[in-house]
Design a protein around this nucleic acid. Structure first.
Lengths: 248, 248
DNA sequence: TTTACAGTTTAGACGATGCTAAAAACTTCC
DNA sequence: GGAAGTTTTTAGCATCGTCTAAACTGTAAA
């Protein structure tokens, strides 16, 4: 472990000396493309601009620079997709982000909906050494507080075997695996609402009804409380059928 | 406390909305002036340039901008000193820095000499809310791992009642209060050396000899081990005579 | 007092990132 | 196939922080 940390320090030093480490802007773009493209797909200029609250022209500009740097494949009017290098960089940031969120929540008492913004700033400031020490301190968690999988150091991301609640069927017994409001900006209200009602990752539910006419999903939680969720809310909740460790 | 955190969040929000929060460069300059000027004095262009590893011309440039912003009093060829606002900003950063160092050392297992660099980057990324939550988690420490006092939220800094070991006298019984290599850049070797020998804040020593001819100071530690320290090393070690909590 | 030099400022430029306005290219629909 | 609309790009500019080279100032020594 001491050996490991030393190795990481070394890697960090090298990356600082050899190649200039990506600025936080570059990181933001790469991460945005990763999130929009789902890891493999393509993101359009407009989508990226919306995600980062930046003018489309700025995106075009930066995309050119990212191409030079080898992070994206990009041809004008064609949108951008990540290269292997870009994907690795994105996963590195996602790992940092999710570990930091976990720390903020578990050790600093942040609320579920507040962690994102702080993590967003911190992920650009911490070193790889810090990240790995934090991971160790947290017990190498595999998922963050929202239930999202945390990429490993070598850039592996656990496959996502969960489905949205809107695709559930009445009678199914499920466990919430993650809560991911759409890629829009204002996630906080949704997270607050669900958090207050205990609808957080790990919670087990029974699907009572998925009403075709208006998309409202009704579920019953472990305490026997029923929740009627509108389509937007239900779409934010991802579940796994019959949790692995299901007893009873 | 919940009330407190809420208040801090509010303060943070306001500062983000009302005045643009200082960039990390601005913070670096303000902190450098504070450190060089000892909190009250003046720092020259050259000194600041050396401290920040930046060209003197860049300092002149930035000093003009800091004056506009109200952080420094500055006239050409006269050096710069902090205004009240500048001093407050500096202390805010110093508080962050020292709290972060404490966290890195106590919770992430960083070594004594490694904390500085990481903290230097992090202090520009964390929010006030983060800082205060961290302070709470650490038990509101009054000093950092180097023994330096941590400014309070309202900008008060404990007075420094310690003296350098070079000013000690033979026979005195002292406790190391802090270890501060000069303002030069490469502190790490000194910290490593002292750390390996257990010469860290809190350690009690008996001064055996302060040799006038070559400035070597000899001390005996709690385990009866003698250390002969050259003048440069001795100057880095600050002590208090008869620690308050002295028993024995 | 004059000179010489260390320290400081000015001038001009650059790279990164962002913006707006206007032109160009794709798409879609008739 | 072309008009209309949307998306994207180009062009030109602004800001921040930095740099180098050259000019300037202040001071200490002769």
């Amino acid at each position: 472990m001491t050996k490991n940390a030393g190795c990481l320090d070394f890697r960090l030093e090298m990356s600082n000396i050899a190649t200039t480490s990506p600025s936080s802007s570059v990181g933001d773009y790469v991460k945005a493309i990763w999130e929009l493209g789902g890891g493999t797909g393509t993101a359009s200029t407009k989508e990226i601009a919306g995600r980062l609250s930046v003018a489309p022209a700025s995106v075009t500009n930066m995309l050119g620079r990212l191409r030079e740097r080898g992070f994206v494949d990009y041809e004008r009017y064609r949108g951008a997709s990540l290269t292997e290098e870009g994907r690795a960089e994105a996963l590195r940031l996602v790992r940092r982000h999710r570990l930091i969120e976990t720390f903020l929540l578990e050790h600093l008492g942040y609320s579920w909906e507040d962690v994102h913004e702080e993590a967003e700033r911190l992920e650009h400031a911490v070193s790889d050494a810090f990240t790995e020490r934090l991971a160790k301190m947290l017990g190498h968690p595999e998922r963050d507080p929202h239930g999202e999988p945390i990429p490993t150091v070598d850039g592996t991301l656990a496959p996502d075997d969960s489905r949205s609640l809107v695709d559930a069927e009445a009678g199914e017994r499920v466990a919430i695996s993650r809560v991911s409001p759409g890629v829009g900006d204002d996630d906080a209200p949704v997270l607050v609402y669900l958090g207050e009602r205990g609808l957080v990752p790990g919670r087990e539910l029974v699907v009572e009804e998925v009403r075709a006419v208006d998309g409202v999903v009704t579920v019953e939680d472990e305490d026997g409380v029923s929740h009627a969720l509108g389509p937007a809310l239900a779409a934010s909740i991802f579940v796994r059928i019959y949790p692995e460790s299901a007893q009873e």
